[in-house]
């Protein structure tokens, strides 16, 4: 390693204090174009001012129902879609302000695991090439070394090195998801964003993949942003959980605490919807009325008030801000 590189490594990684990922006031509005000139006539407020930190080695679960903007958050952090405003810092470095060259370096440090194990692997490429592509892009290793790395990665995710010449359609959904994980690990990232990594899999396969993810986290000191709509899954893997509703975070807290003692009525409803494997168990269910409102024209004040069981007039006028509601727990509700 060159001297500059050593200096850079020392300046960057373990000695640096503070969170690995900082998301500040992230906003993503999608234009709805209309009319003759195809000008924006309205905006879909998919993500509307989201902030959170992820510490090194931590798993932050991001939950919310379909349309809450959680996948948009994941994709915007990775700059797969351009942000409207806000800031994302990885190891203190701005992701959005990075030049093309800087961005290529940053990309090595954050990778993604996709939801769909079918659509996320190129059907025309042998899995060995799929996994090695990141190494090729960054010019890491000779072809021989890359082959060895692919064998290693396939074994790490529980497949066999000999499988590298096979094509994605020769594997099952769970196996494909393992290939996707191997691809994400190839660049030895610090941050892995898992966008609903198990929701397309059979329940029996889900726990295998979740176990693999947590084994990998321990082995490689990975930091996860784990996006999912299933509270039970998120609870199992997360150290902390952030709950999203209609483009905003409504509650954040340590996983155990948030599940045992949710403060926001939306979180309460989500948790009461998790099935409990005990037929004799009876509990109070908070059933929400209706669907999530349109993010084009969200309700005034508190976005959740239209479906909230305890909403009052104040909620329509005054938007509740995130405030401490317990030890390390914050919620955006006037009555939490």
């Amino acid at each position: 390693m060159s001297r500059e590189l050593v200096a850079e490594v020392e300046a960057a990684s373990p000695t640096r204090k503070g969170p690995l990922l900082e998301v500040r006031d992230l906003v993503k509005h999608f234009p709805i174009k209309g009319g003759l000139l195809q000008l924006p006539v309205a905006w879909v407020k998919a993500v509307d001012g989201v902030s959170f930190d992820i510490q090194r080695g931590e798993t932050l679960g991001l939950v919310g129902e379909s349309g809450s903007g959680k996948s948009t958050v994941a994709r915007t952090i990775l700059r797969l879609i351009p942000p409207t405003s806000g800031e994302v810092l990885l190891e203190g470095k701005s992701v959005f302000k990075a030049s093309a060259n800087e961005m290529k370096k940053i990309r090595r440090d954050m990778q993604i695991i996709f939801q769909d194990p079918y659509g996320s692997l190129n059907p025309r490429m042998p899995v060995g090439e799929i996994i090695a592509e990141g190494l090729v892009v960054h010019g890491i290793g000779s072809p021989k070394e890359r082959e060895a790395a692919v064998n290693r990665l396939l074994e790490i995710v529980g497949l066999r090195g000999q499988h590298r010449g096979r094509f994605p359609h020769e594997f099952s959904g769970g196996q494909r998801q393992r290939i996707g994980i191997a691809r994400a690990l190839a660049l030895t990232p610090n941050l892995v964003i898992a966008d609903e990594p198990v929701s397309a899999l059979d329940v029996s396969i889900q726990s295998q993949v979740l176990n693999l993810l947590s084994d990998l986290q321990k082995e490689f000191n990975l930091t996860y942003l784990f996006v999912a709509h299933n509270m039970a899954v998120v609870e199992q893997v997360s150290d902390r959980i952030a709950v999203m509703y209609l483009g905003k975070i409504v509650e954040v807290g340590p996983a155990e605490e948030l599940v045992r003692n949710p403060k926001h009525p939306y979180t309460q409803a989500l948790i009461s919807a998790v099935p409990v494997p005990d037929p004799a168990y009876r509990r109070e269910r908070t059933v929400l009325k209706g669907d999530i409102p349109s993010p084009i024209n969200p309700p005034s004040g508190c976005h959740f008030r239209t479906r909230c069981p305890i909403a009052t007039e104040r909620c329509a006028v005054e938007e509740p801000l995130l405030r401490p509601v317990g030890k390390d727990q914050i919620a955006a509700c006037h009555y939490a």
């Binding site: 390693m1 590189l5 850079e8 490594v9 960057a12 990684s13 190891e91 370096k105 940053i106 090595r108 440090d109 190494l135 890491i140 290793g141 070394e145 890359r146 060895a148 790395a149 290693r152 990665l153 074994e155 790490i156 995710v157 529980g158 497949l159 066999r160 499988h163 096979r166 020769e170 594997f171 099952s172 769970g174 196996q175 393992r178 190839a186 660049l187 030895t188 295998q208 176990n211 693999l212 084994d215 990998l216 321990k218 082995e219 490689f220």
Partner: peptide, 28 residues
């Protein structure tokens, strides 16, 4: 940002043999 090298990957431990069995065979 650390400089990942292929030799670094070589030295990584395989987590557990359990995962191998779970991964299973690919269809031919």
């Amino acid at each position: 940002m650390s400089e990942p090298t292929v030799s670094e990957l070589d030295s990584l431990p395989v987590p557990e043999v359990r995962a191998l069995a779970e991964g299973g065979e690919a269809k031919v």
